[in-house]
Design a protein around this nucleic acid. Sequence first.
DNA 1: CGGGATCCGTTACGATACTG
DNA 2: CAGTATCGTAACGGATCCCG
Lengths: 225, 225
Amino acid sequence: MTAARRYRLLCPIARALDAVGDRWSLLILRDLHAGPARFTDLLTGLRGIASNLLTDRLQQLAEDGLIDKQRSDYGVVLYALTDLGEQTDVLLFELALFGGLLPPDAEPRRPGNLRTIAVTLKVACQRVVTSGSTLLAALQVDGEPFTLRVRGARVEVRSGAPEAPEVTLKTAYEPMVAAGDGRLSFEDFVAQHVEITAHKPGKDLILTDLLGRAVAEIRVASASG
Amino acid sequence: MTAARRYRLLCPIARALDAVGDRWSLLILRDLHAGPARFTDLLTGLRGIASNLLTDRLQQLAEDGLIDKQRSDYGVVLYALTDLGEQTDVLLFELALFGGLLPPDAEPRRPGNLRTIAVTLKVACQRVVTSGSTLLAALQVDGEPFTLRVRGARVEVRSGAPEAPEVTLKTAYEPMVAAGDGRLSFEDFVAQHVEITAHKPGKDLILTDLLGRAVAEIRVASASG
DNA sequence: CGGGATCCGTTACGATACTG
DNA sequence: CAGTATCGTAACGGATCCCG
């Protein structure tokens, strides 16, 4: 956001919006919660952002200290959340919670990738995880690989497949969102749209239990307004 | 937001932003959490919004079912949150929490009124209130009257003075925000910027205890990223 | 005076094309 | 792959005007 169009108020809500309030910014942060990403990952994932706008936003977010531009040994450019940027997770989750109350678009556009699911899934699981748990799961959503890791009371959801997963879960994006919105019960979701394979005994139950309580938590939080 | 500039994605975060993501919308909702407001209340409170934009935003928010336009007996037009609109409270609180981590502007502009404080104060108190409490407090922030009411486990913060307050608290806006941001300790805030009068014995202690725990909660939530 | 509507200059956005 | 450059269009900001 250029200086001219900032609110410049003392109110912390306005202050937050001056940093993340313009178009695309929150969606860029959302996708970065799935782990560091290349320019092109973001460009395709955001489905419709112009490349010059992506450049502008990335620079702005970097200026405000929310993201970092990294260049690996072989010249690969990666954008990653800073510690400050990580702290948008709960905020994004609350946005998702509120968005779930609104009717979905009649003919929504498909994003180029599904990094979009990472924050919401992470925070939802984080809220219900029991400390001391351990889990390393491979998720495949419409064929796209993600890693869900629980260590201690800490949950992590990242783009990309894990090395030696204890359990593998395959599902599809649309039913996932429908379950989160409450348009599809968790039981029907699992029965009809989930294929799960345990590589280590019992880990399949741990995963479905975690996901079930995460979805239940979303429903409770949505209803408690 | 016109149809052309909507994201139209399935992702609930994008869905939320399609409803509340354009400029001023979240700040309008923020101010409405202080209770129903007139067009002019919003116009002055938002400090710098153009009247045509306010009209546009109010219509859009009404279309999406977040607010209601009411006309009282004497033709006074009031805008109020719907039940759906009320549910933006936690979202706005999380924005405030995140904004508190960002450096405040060097020379912030003053809003025309202080409705801005209502949501944040309400949700912060809501999070720490002990069920069964009862309190009716008159707040005066820079001379502007607010009502803080606790009934059961329900907290309400509204613009305007209460009828028969059990306690009256006078303070100023800037130190309030500083205390919320953590730039000023709660003890210093109370000692230097708060004038409190109990009209019913003990209610002053109940109020300061509530506020103290609310501020502590904000600090904990901000640090736990 | 409250509650807007209209007009107009400026800025940001969106789409496409192009480059190291 | 990671952007830059250009350009038409839509949104914003400020001011003025209008009507009950």
